[in-house]
Design a protein around this nucleic acid. Structure first.
Lengths: 208, 208
DNA sequence: GTTTTATCTAAGCACTGCTTAATATCCGAA
DNA sequence: TTCGGATATTAAGCAGTGCTTAGATAAAAC
């Protein structure tokens, strides 16, 4: 039983350095948030983890693979944050708005993480088609589900599967664009505080 | 008279290498489009321009400054493309839609250029507050103007300056998010051809 | 023709990603 | 208990990078 549990989590811990794989990811997250994705280097990461510059290459194929892993973690975190945001809210439209705010807020509070999630160039350096499975973005799934709730409750007129797809793309593009403009674009000068960001997002998503 | 004209354009051309400043920008644009922003290097650029690795530093403070200049050029180009897109169209709502399509299409056809325009990290490496003036994005100005046309024609109910600001942010975020999701996000797998992109954008912007 | 100014190069420093070969540590079997 | 094999890590080095400093070259100004 406990054996099964151990086999489930593929960590070979009590070897040399403890669990370097996890340590690297953790340190990488902090480093990226500190110096940005362009200032991020594997050597500095190794330095901070207290290992040699070559050590990370035994846990990640290359720099891009590590960043890819980081991006996947962030996707999960964003999904969790989204679920947290709608917990306790019953009205479908309010759930939808809360999801939007959670999305933009996550970008605002973890800008480097957010950027990494949408930088395809970083992930597969030369189209090596090595992505094991196109895992669906959990935040997007949640958004789509909530949109269905809204439709079923009669709040939004959506007829047909295609209209649903379009509506979800619409909503996603809206909050994603808002997030990008706020953290990297011209809106960054105007909307600085968390409260301003929340208010703007609510106003924008309400208009839908 | 012609002297005045020459003084207007600050090129000191017939020196050493001809006009290296412009040559560098041109070659940089091609190089970035070819290898992406992360694969772009000043040394390779110098190589292609046929000058020494140190030469570009006499025309641009550093790599970030060159990319900044490139981004500014792209902003102008996007503005021109937008103007081109609405030329001849009189109906305000159709003009608005055409603007949206032009925006997304520009991103689709010049993805590297588009990314550069929205990568603040690249431009001022350590917040050196050296940007001379916050020049307004020409494409955004055009969008706002067209939105005013729509309001004045009675197509969209907008009351007050603040509502106008919100509506333009709304529209901008929508097309910007769409563009980002198409070139860097999950929609890149679904929407591949120019025709697909145009159709999607029209459907999305029509829903507004 | 000389001086001044603009333009470019040569050489080098510190850093990077990544590879190859050798080394340390642990685990399980003889 | 020893030992072989798998696991984890290091050392050393290559090619490439951004950027700086000092010097060379050519055009402009006088």
């Amino acid at each position: 039983m406990s054996r099964l549990l151990l086999e489930n989590t593929p960590k070979h811990e009590p070897y040399h350095h403890g669990n370097l794989h996890a340590t690297l990811l953790e340190a990488a997250r902090a480093l990226v948030e500190e110096v940005g994705i362009d200032g991020f280097s594997l050597r500095e990461l190794a330095r901070r983890a207290g290992v040699s510059p070559a050590a990370p290459y035994h846990h990640f194929k290359d720099k891009a693979a590590l960043i890819q892993a980081l991006a996947q973690e962030s996707q999960v975190r964003l999904g969790i944050a989204s679920q947290h945001a709608i917990k306790g809210i019953t009205d479908p439209m309010q759930r939808l708005s809360a999801l939007g705010v959670a999305y933009v807020l996550y970008a605002f509070e973890h800008p480097s993480e957010f950027r990494i999630m949408f930088r395809q160039e970083l992930r597969s350096p030369l189209g090596e088609l090595e992505q094991p499975d196109i895992e669906p973005d959990p935040a997007f799934v949640l958004l789509k589900d909530t949109l269905i709730e809204c439709r079923d409750a009669g709040c939004i007129p959506i007829t047909g599967e295609k209209a649903l797809e379009l509506a979800s793309i619409n909503m996603w593009a809206l909050v994603h664009g808002l997030a990008t403009l706020i953290i990297d674009g011209p809106l960054s000068h105007t909307f600085r505080t968390k409260e301003q960001v929340i208010e703007l997002t609510q106003q924008i998503t309400r208009g839908q």
